[in-house]
């Protein structure tokens, strides 16, 4: 099981960010959610070992064929590619409680 890092806040849904520790847009995405006080999990894929990284990338590509970062998965079914918090909030607002 790949370890997810958790950032505390108000739980608006299950938000998982597939990120790179070195990427500027990934950092902006994490920071913006934190500033909004929204809870999320993240995985920095570049910090994983080879086999783990391969495994995670298979999942990332299922949601985002390009396998680019950040890939934000919401409630296991919605996906936002890139730094786009408005889109994340829109999806969260339209999700049933």
């Amino acid at each position: 099981m790949i370890e997810r890092k958790h950032v505390d806040g108000e739980k608006k849904g299950e938000i998982l960010i597939y990120a790179l520790s070195t990427c500027g847009w990934c950092r902006k995405t994490k920071k913006h959610l934190e500033d909004l006080g929204i809870a999320y999990d993240y995985i920095d894929v570049d910090l994983l070992e080879g086999p783990e990284s391969e495994e995670v990338m298979k999942t990332v590509r299922k949601f985002n064929e390009k396998g680019s970062f950040p890939t934000i998965v919401i409630n296991g079914k919605h996906c936002v590619v890139g730094y786009n918090i408005d889109k994340v909030r829109e999806i969260l607002e339209n999700e049933p409680d």
């Binding site: 790179l20 990427c23 847009w25 990284s53 990338m57 680019s68 970062f69």
Partner: peptide, 11 residues
């Protein structure tokens, strides 16, 4: 890696 690989892409 020994080279300036793009920080926003997985090398």
């Amino acid at each position: 890696f020994g080279y300036l690989s793009c920080p926003c892409r997985l090398a």
